[in-house]
């Protein structure tokens, strides 16, 4: 069976719809992972021990097991406890939580790296602990952590292919639908790869631009 890429254009609408969903999932999960990541970081650093310890265990579990396994757990686990979420929502939550744990690690390190003098100055002015975090420490820590979080978002794009296995009709599943009708896996997976690569290049370009801007603001 020889290769024949001429069948690809007939399924362009299916593929492009998949591209759209992939972008939506990536954006949704990125935003979720960013804010939840900040929340996780603050818990990990400042919560009382009876919150912190179980949380650490949760973090540890998420960093020590495959994303795919976590997606199965979230999707089927939620169904079991009676919550039947659309696959898309389950995918965003799974990816988002997974990356929130990784972002949290970055943000924790970054918070700890903010100069002690900053906290002292803020407390001297009369700001409370929470206010100091909210207005002085976290904003600085977040700025420092934007480039590595950008890397995580780019990684997240590629991991978004995994949500195809729980039935989210993003780019990978779209390719599989087209393959189901044409029996041409090579052509359609390569096409999907090309679209992923293009999105990846765009994200990398944006990332570089942001890094340059941050470098300038120092």
């Amino acid at each position: 069976m020889s290769l024949d890429f001429t069948v690809v254009p007939q399924f362009l609408d299916v593929i492009l719809l998949g591209v759209l969903w992939t972008i939506l999932i990536t954006l949704g999960a990125s935003v979720l992972s960013f804010f939840v990541g900040i929340f996780f970081a603050i818990i990990a650093l400042y919560a009382p021990w009876f919150v912190r310890l179980p949380f650490r265990a949760f973090e540890w579990l998420f960093m020590g097991t495959p994303l795919l396994l976590q997606l199965f757990l979230i999707y089927f686990g939620l169904i079991q406890v009676g919550i039947d979420l659309p696959a898309f929502v389950a995918g965003v939550i799974g990816l988002g939580l997974h990356y929130a744990v990784y972002n949290s690690e970055l943000i924790q390190a970054s918070i700890l790296a903010v100069d002690r003098g900053q906290t002292e100055a803020a407390r001297t002015l009369g700001l409370s602990r929470m206010q100091t975090l909210r207005y002085v420490v976290v904003p600085q820590a977040v700025r420092d952590v934007i480039p590595p979080i950008g890397n995580n978002m780019i990684a997240l794009l590629k991991d978004s292919a995994l949500v195809s296995v729980i039935g989210v009709s993003e780019l990978t599943l779209s390719a599989q639908q087209a393959i189901g009708r044409t029996f041409r896996p090579f052509e359609f997976y390569v096409t999907a790869a090309a679209f992923y690569y293009a999105i990846n290049l765009i994200m990398e370009a944006v990332q570089r631009r942001i890094e340059r801007r941050i470098a300038l603001s120092r």
Partner: peptide, 22 residues
């Protein structure tokens, strides 16, 4: 660039499902 820029899952599918075609 190519192997880091595309999902590992897709690479695997190209090799396993698409491989026989080539």
């Amino acid at each position: 660039s190519l192997f880091r820029g595309t999902p590992a899952l897709i690479q695997l599918f190209i090799l396993y499902f698409g491989g026989p075609q080539i």
